[in-house]
Computed example of a mutant assay.
Amino acid sequence: MAAVRAIEQADLIVAPVACEGGISMAMRIASHWIKPDQPQLSVVFPMVEAPEPRQQAWKAAADLLASEVSTGKQVVLLCEGDASLFASGSYVLLSLQQRHPSCQLRVIPGITSFSSTAAAAVWPLALQQDQLLVAPCPDSELDFERMASHAEEQGQNLALLKLGRRWRWLRPLLEQRGLLSRSLFAEKVGWPDQCIAPAEQIAAEERPYFSLLLIRQRWPDVLP
């Protein structure tokens, strides 16, 4: 409710897009609570590997937000999921603290994609002495093998984010390690066309960037 109140009371709603003229899924999700007469603005956070374009975008967004706040406006920067976990908005907040230390900030925690997935599927992320490792999906088969072996030794359940094209080689590896039947696949969580299904049902092909996998190593000895 805190996020809804912030949106309803905002003088300006700002949302990230990947390119000029792009559609903000965060804005679409929040549209249920945005009034028709509320000013809206998009800021571009380019999805590129080069550091300079991203750094310039974060600085520009921070300067823009600080300028609007300095006029007395209440400004909301939308974020999908939680603003503190793998979020572009986190970089803007860091830039604001650095470039505009007097600008008042408030971060409203959100629901992570893997938590939302677990709730929808009634899939406990961790029980009793379980450990949970949250990480982007490794870029190579060798890196995943190392991660999976360590997780098995430690009894860690895994929440792997940003599967995308990696699913093509990850699915066969899960099957080889006997983990496929203990894995839950999800993509576009919270979107109208979200998909949450046992990983066995998802073919080994490229998936959207916003896809993830939950892997359970084992169940505790004491259960209902």
Rank of each mutant, 00 (worst) to 15 (best):
residue 2 A to C: 09
residue 3 A to P: 00
residue 5 R to S: 13
residue 8 E to P: 08
residue 12 L to N: 08
residue 13 I to W: 05
residue 13 I to P: 00
residue 19 C to F: 11
residue 20 E to F: 09
residue 21 G to L: 14
residue 22 G to E: 04
residue 25 M to H: 08
residue 25 M to N: 07
residue 27 M to G: 00
residue 31 S to E: 10
residue 31 S to A: 15
residue 32 H to R: 15
residue 33 W to Y: 14
residue 33 W to T: 02
residue 35 K to I: 03
residue 36 P to C: 06
residue 37 D to I: 05
residue 40 Q to E: 13
residue 41 L to Y: 11
residue 47 M to P: 03
residue 48 V to K: 10
residue 49 E to I: 02
residue 53 P to V: 10
residue 53 P to I: 12
residue 57 A to D: 04
residue 63 D to K: 11
residue 63 D to F: 03
residue 64 L to I: 06
residue 66 A to V: 03
residue 73 K to Y: 01
residue 75 V to M: 00
residue 75 V to A: 02
residue 76 V to R: 00
residue 79 C to E: 04
residue 80 E to L: 07
residue 82 D to H: 01
residue 84 S to Q: 07
residue 85 L to F: 06
residue 85 L to S: 00
residue 86 F to T: 00
residue 91 Y to I: 02
residue 93 L to W: 08
residue 93 L to Y: 09
residue 95 S to L: 05
residue 98 Q to P: 01
residue 103 C to K: 01
residue 105 L to W: 02
residue 105 L to E: 05
residue 106 R to Q: 15
residue 111 I to L: 11
residue 116 S to H: 01
residue 116 S to N: 03
residue 117 T to S: 05
residue 119 A to R: 08
residue 120 A to Q: 14
residue 122 V to N: 15
residue 123 W to C: 06
residue 130 D to T: 11
residue 130 D to K: 09
residue 132 L to E: 06
residue 134 V to T: 05
residue 134 V to P: 15
residue 135 A to Q: 12
residue 136 P to D: 03
residue 139 D to T: 09
residue 140 S to P: 03
residue 141 E to I: 12
residue 142 L to E: 15
residue 145 E to S: 15
residue 148 A to N: 05
residue 150 H to V: 14
residue 152 E to F: 00
residue 152 E to A: 11
residue 153 E to G: 03
residue 155 G to M: 10
residue 159 A to R: 12
residue 160 L to N: 12
residue 163 L to A: 14
residue 163 L to D: 12
residue 163 L to I: 10
residue 163 L to V: 07
residue 165 R to G: 03
residue 166 R to M: 01
residue 172 P to A: 12
residue 172 P to V: 10
residue 173 L to D: 00
residue 176 Q to L: 11
residue 176 Q to F: 08
residue 181 S to N: 11
residue 181 S to V: 08
residue 183 S to L: 02
residue 184 L to V: 05
residue 185 F to A: 08
residue 189 V to N: 02
residue 197 A to M: 05
residue 200 E to F: 02
residue 202 I to N: 07
residue 203 A to W: 02
residue 204 A to S: 14
residue 205 E to A: 15
residue 206 E to A: 14
residue 207 R to M: 09
residue 208 P to C: 06
residue 208 P to R: 03
residue 212 L to Y: 12
residue 215 I to K: 01
residue 217 Q to N: 13
residue 222 V to T: 10
